[in-house]
C-alpha cells in the first residue's frame, strides 16, 4: 500500500513582527484537525514558533515546509539571511545576537534554538554565512495514528 504523506509550504517574512506566529498557528491548526494528541501539538507548535521567530528576527525571508507521514512529522525552515557563524555557540542557552528591537518583543534571550531542541526528537541545523540557514526538525508522535 502506498504511504500517505501530507505536505504544506508557508512563507515567512523577515521583520514582520506583527504576524510572527501566524504560520505556526496554521501548523497547529492542521495538527489539531488531524487529531494529534494535544501535548504533541503543543510541542510542535512551540518548536515551529521559535523557528519562525528566528526567520522574522534575523532573516530577509523564509519558507516553512511541513511534512506529515504516519510515522513522523518533519518541519524544515529554510531562510535567506545572514546565516549562523557558530552553530554550537548559537545552541547554548543565553547566547544571542538579537537586536534591542527583538528583545523588546520578548525574544532574543538566546533560548530559541535550545527551546526547539527540547521539543523535537531530532534537530539538524545547516548554515552558510551570508546565504542562510536551514533548521530541520523531526518530531515523532508518542503513538502512531491514522489520519484522514
Amino acid at each position: 500500500m502506498e504511504e500517505k504523506v501530507l505536505e504544506w509550504d508557508y512563507e515567512i517574512n523577515g521583520k514582520d513582527f506583527r504576524n510572527a506566529g501566524k504560520v505556526s498557528s496554521k501548523v497547529k491548526e492542521i495538527l489539531k484537525e488531524l487529531g494529534f494528541d494535544p501535548d504533541f501539538v503543543r510541542r510542535v507548535a512551540i518548536a515551529s514558533y521559535e523557528a519562525e521567530m528566528n526567520v522574522v528576527c534575523h532573516a530577509e525571508r523564509g519558507v516553512l515546509h511541513l511534512t506529515i507521514s504516519p510515522e513522523e512529522l518533519r518541519i524544515v525552515v529554510k531562510d535567506k539571511g545572514p546565516g549562523i557563524q557558530d552553530i554550537e555557540l548559537a545552541m547554548q542557552e543565553g547566547y544571542s545576537t538579537a537586536s534591542p528591537e527583538i528583545r523588546e518583543m520578548g525574544f532574543g534571550a538566546g533560548m530559541g534554538l535550545p527551546n526547539i531542541k527540547k521539543n523535537v526528537d531530532k534537530l539538524n541545523i545547516a548554515s552558510t554565512v551570508g546565504e542562510g540557514t536551514v533548521v530541520d526538525m523531526l518530531i515523532k508522535p508518542s503513538s502512531i495514528r491514522e489520519f484522514g
Partner: peptide
C-alpha cells in the same frame, strides 16, 4: 508587562 502581538501568539501556541 509586554503588550505586543507576540504575547498573543505565545499564548496561542503554548496553549
Amino acid at each position: 508587562g509586554l503588550v505586543n502581538s507576540q504575547v498573543i501568539w505565545t499564548a496561542e501556541l503554548a496553549e
